[in-house]
């Protein structure tokens, strides 16, 4: 009876170690060619990988294609996953590589700059309005995404992971395959470039940084 009650009294959510064990089991079976195990892994990780790629690309239509490519490459390369890190992290690392290829295939620096100018030129509506208006928030998002498109991929991905996704530096660095120190340098450079662009386009005042600092010190 005791064992029965133990089975009847489940926790509503599995513990972290239970989830890991379960995933390890699925991975083991997937390595053995179990399609259903793969289907389960695919289903469980799809949303997160999709979101990750959408953040990197800013384009959900592209992300829809790239997420499939990510899983397809993960499928054929599963033997390379040694289990030292998490499976989710490994998938995200593959996604980053695929996004880089995507950027290389479509990046045209002049077009990105043109787009940035167009997006930014529409800003006049917002700056004098309620600073928290939905319109202004939407405009800020569009401008920042347009600025991101003009950045070199290595700066862009550093900024997205550190500042948009708020990932811890060590995890983000591992995902990008660089050292934490290197990531910090890239993120800092990305911020400087973004700030510089926003100042040039009139979205930030030249001395905004100093003002913020003065504010913070006061």
């Amino acid at each position: 009876m005791g064992s029965l009650l133990q089975l009847l009294r489940p926790g509503s959510t599995p513990s972290a170690s239970e989830a890991e064990d379960r995933e390890a089991e699925l991975l083991h079976r997937a390595r053995g060619g179990d399609i259903e195990a793969w289907s389960r892994l695919y289903q469980e990780h799809f949303d997160r990988v999709f979101r990750h790629i959408a953040y990197l690309t800013g384009d959900t239509a592209a992300a829809e294609d790239l997420v499939q490519e990510t899983f397809a490459r993960a499928f054929v390369g599963l033997a390379q996953f040694e289990g030292r890190g998490s499976f989710a992290g490994w998938l995200r690392g593959i996604a980053v590589n695929i996004v880089r290829k995507h950027w290389r295939s479509r990046y045209r620096g002049d077009q990105a700059m043109d787009r940035l100018e167009v997006v930014s030129a529409q800003r006049s509506v917002g700056t004098d309005a309620d600073p928290e208006s939905a319109h202004l928030r939407q405009r800020r998002a569009e401008v920042l995404m347009a600025v991101l498109e003009t950045l070199p991929p290595h700066l862009r991905e550093a900024f997205v992971l550190c500042d948009l996704q708020d990932m811890p530096v060590p995890a983000a660095a591992a995902e990008l395959g660089i050292s934490p120190g290197n990531l910090r340098v890239r993120a800092t450079r990305a911020r400087a470039r973004i700030r510089s662009e926003l100042v040039r386009l009139g979205w930030l005042a030249e001395d905004s940084h100093d003002k913020e600092r003065d504010h913070g010190d006061a």
């Binding site: 959408a54 928030r137 973004i194």
Partner: peptide, 22 residues
């Protein structure tokens, strides 16, 4: 290492925007 405060509204709004898109 920190995001400059003047960029914070941009990153916040962009993250919100991307979440909506997703």
């Amino acid at each position: 290492d920190r995001l400059p405060p003047e960029l914070a509204p941009f990153t916040r709004d962009t993250a919100d925007h991307l979440d909506r898109l997703v």
